[in-house]
């Protein structure tokens, strides 16, 4: 009789005998769920990492690479009046940010939000988009969006509900929300 051995496929992944049956079942179930198109693609930890990375990215490189944008113009805006705006974080947190740069960044976020080929997760692009609007309101008392008050409030609330949002952005959204209620920005 021919001998049949159950070793050919079994050897692909050695069984970890320390895992219980339920632990292994849960791991397999999670992996199956990961394949489900309805499931979120990134965990909160992933989004924190990606948002951090995006905020620290050189804005001249990202904004300058947008179609129809002159990178030299971006460079001039980022260094005008003695400014040293290297990253998106520098821009959003600045006490007197150049509005043109905030508008350009908002456009960058919007393009990434709607592009199916974007390298930035939609959640992160959406945070960046509303951060630009909130920054202009908080630091310059200006509204750089065509969205109505309700839509802006809804957007800020959505951002504030992200558990992976950075504390400094959280504070800025709360202030911007307060200004919206009081009508403190134009």
């Amino acid at each position: 009789m021919k001998e049949f051995h159950a070793t050919k496929k079994d050897s692909l992944t050695p069984l970890d005998s320390t895992r219980t049956l339920n632990e292994e079942a849960n791991g397999l179930l999670t992996l199956l769920n990961e394949m489900d198109p309805g499931e979120p693609l990134w965990s909160g930890d992933d989004l924190t990492t990606i948002l951090d990375h995006q905020l620290q990215a050189p804005l001249i490189v990202d904004l300058g690479s947008m179609q129809g944008v002159d990178s030299e113009h971006v460079r001039q805006l980022a260094s005008a009046r003695g400014l040293v705006l290297r990253s998106f974080e520098d821009l959003l947190g600045h006490s007197n940010p150049p509005l043109q740069l905030l508008v350009l960044t908002k456009e960058f976020a919007k393009r990434n939000l709607i592009s199916p080929r974007s390298a930035i997760p939609r959640e992160v692009a959406r945070i960046l988009y509303f951060s630009c609007i909130a920054s202009a309101m908080v630091h310059s008392r200006k509204v750089i969006s065509q969205l109505g008050t309700d839509e802006l409030m809804e957007g800020f609330s959505w951002c504030l509900q992200r558990p992976w949002l950075k504390p400094e952005l959280q504070e800025m959204f709360e202030q911007a929300g307060g200004l919206l209620v009081k009508g403190g920005a134009q």
């Binding site: 992944t13 990375h53 995006q54």
Partner: peptide, 25 residues
Amino acid sequence: PFLEGAVPMPYGELVELLDIESPSQ
């Protein structure tokens, strides 16, 4: 992580390992 019970490698380490530009990549 899910078939063998290992800890997932952080994105920062993957960026270095693969010599790619960013965690979003």
